[in-house]
Amino acid sequence: MSTTGMNLTLKIWRQKNGNERGRFETYPVSGISEDMSFLEMFDVLNEQLITEGKDPIAFDHDCREGICGMCSMYINGQPHGPNDRVTTCQLHMRSFKNGDTIVVEPWRAAAFPVIKDLAVDRSSFDRIIAAGGFVSVNTGNAQDANSLPIAKENADEAFAAAACIGCGACVAACKNSSAMLFVSAKVSQLALLPQGEPERRERVINMVNKMDEEGFGNCTNTGACAEECPKGISLENIARLNREFLLANVSGK
């Protein structure tokens, strides 16, 4: 290993599986280049652990370009670490300095049970989408795409909401483990578009009910979710979700 680069102390949550108790373990790493991503720093540590005959740290990751939403990690008290609008895989070591101690934990929420170490089960999000996060259009039913003009403003706003990567940082950031930002992003995308109109009311009710059923907490408007969201999903979506929900309820559907 190179003698140049940063020396760091990592305090990492280790937990064998969902049934056993976890604990923090401390690991020193050295020779960390500032051009490495945070996950590449974990690769270095794991390589070291394997060489020493120890169990490497399990963590979720896949695309490593900030779009698949698979990486998680609660770093020094913040989901995806200290930088704004960045997933853990895009966090680079130049954001840290030599000698730093870095604490890394999994997402912590009742609806995201730990699988092992830093990997958690986020399938509750899939079930929320299955409850209503779609337009019911079978393949082959569509009319010509340009037969439905949509104001650019609405299309852009819908896109901004649809940019959610489903990583769960909003839930991890929330003191109540609420999934309101995630749910509101999908509800907003489809509420802003004419395609979503026919199922607008059932959708919001079904998704919110499923969210509650999965054990996510309530929203108390602290805004931590939007603050920590790597894709900048706006808090306005939650306001829209609340309006949609109210409207759906008073309309008696």
Binding site: V135, V137, A142, Q143, A145, N146, A151, K152, A155, Q195
Partner: peptide, 19 residues
């Protein structure tokens, strides 16, 4: 393209509302 638009895929649009 027709199918994706029907699903609510938010493609980029021009000011006239077309793709």
């Amino acid at each position: 393209i027709d199918q994706c638009v029907a699903q609510g895929v938010p493609f980029a649009r021009e000011y006239g509302g077309l793709l």
